[in-house]
Design a protein around this nucleic acid. Structure first.
Lengths: 222, 222
DNA sequence: CCGAAATCGGAGGGCTACCTCAGGTTGTAG
DNA sequence: CTACAACCTGAGGTAGCCCTCCGATTTCGG
């Protein structure tokens, strides 16, 4: 007698579970985009037409769901940075990077949160942010070496742009989905070497950026 | 028989009520500053050492409390604009105005909300914002007439700065209370006529600014 | 077509916040 | 000192959300 019992491949899901998981991700994508990462999980389940228990079975913690929803955007973020860091002239790399990040942020409050806060217990997200910020540093330094980016800027100042943009797109996206481009262009004009006037205070230190990112999070999650 | 009953002057309060009202305002000032205008009213009452019913007796709606707490800052806002609009050169008026507004926003999430959202049912606040925005328009136009401010800016673009700054100071204030000055300086460098490069999209129309302000509010209040 | 395992539903307990109101307390005019 | 209006309290009803748990349902290999 042969034991032909074939277990389903590890990690595979029953068909209904696959369907439900996909529905949850779709709903979460939409809701997180509209409301941010602090959206009500019950609302997501409702929108997916499923019970709250099902959501928790698939994603035991909020961050599990967030991680799954944001996976693609996270990859796009890194890819943009990797492309930007080898562009020539380096100024184009900088503008490409910032434009791409802002594009990802536009109309997606969830990704805004990803880009501007920290989530100490979500390793995947933290890794992506660290990678993006490290690449950002090199992008900045290359543009400075080339002479196009004002030399009194620090890589840490990029965080300002991300924070600022998150609010701008939150306000304007529904009203004019392209409006943020105008604001980003103004910002870029202030970053050119030719625009430089003395800055009143030194940049944040890397540690301070991290603390500032945590601060944003404290208000809304967990 | 003479009726000598002297009613207390209209609007005057019993001494204990005066004390309590002041305590509520103090607590609300602190809590709104830390958490924004959507802070829990029960937390404010708790912090004032009073029962929630007392808070509601003094301030029947949240906006009554907000209005009372923000009165001074509202006046400071208008005063800054009125001073700026007659400064010479006009560029100094513009920078003074923006710096002053950002200073008011810094470390006060409540005033950030006042400056960047709309509250259709709070007439006093709406009047102040309208006045500030009207003066802002003249400040912008004067600086353009003088040639110091780039001509492709619209008064509506000032709203971008307020929105952006609200997030920047939210993130950074606790970590470095002066950091926002650096970001504002960068922004100003992008506004100089000498920094101008073509902008990709037209400014928001006044109506769109109003709608965008409402949008920010929808997420957090009422 | 059966039965075990996987999955699902949704009630339920816990929490926090909103806002109201009836009953007790306090300030003050006279 | 008194009486009453003004004031204060905090329990209580409503609501939304979190997260868990277990009985009911569904899937799927054999």
């Amino acid at each position: 007698m042969r034991v032909t019992t074939r277990k389903p491949p590890i990690g595979s899901l029953r068909r209904d579970a696959q369907r439900n998981r996909a529905a949850l991700l779709d709903a979460a994508r939409a809701v997180f985009a509209e409301e941010g990462l602090d959206a009500a999980l019950e609302g997501i389940a409702r929108r997916a037409g499923l019970a709250i228990g099902t959501l928790y079975r698939h994603f035991p913690t909020r961050m599990d769901l967030v991680g799954a929803v944001m996976a693609e955007k996270k990859r796009a973020w890194i890819k943009a940075a990797e492309a930007a860091v080898v562009m020539e002239p380096a100024w184009d790399g900088l503008t490409f990077f910032l434009e791409r990040v802002c594009e990802l942020q536009a109309g997606d409050l969830g990704f805004n949160d990803i880009a501007s806060m920290r989530f100490p217990y979500a390793a995947g997200i933290e890794a992506a942010r660290k990678r993006a910020y490290d690449l950002g540093r090199r992008i900045v330094e290359r543009a400075q070496a080339e002479g196009s980016l004002r030399p009194d800027i620090a890589a840490e100042d990029v965080a300002f742009i991300v924070w600022a943009h998150s609010r701008v797109s939150e306000a304007t996206y529904a009203v004019d989905p392209q409006a943020w481009r105008r604001y980003l262009a103004l910002t870029l004009d202030g970053l050119r070497a030719t625009a430089a006037n003395p800055l009143p205070v030194p940049p944040l230190r890397p540690r301070q950026v991290l603390r500032a990112q945590l601060r944003l999070g404290r208000r809304r999650l967990r």
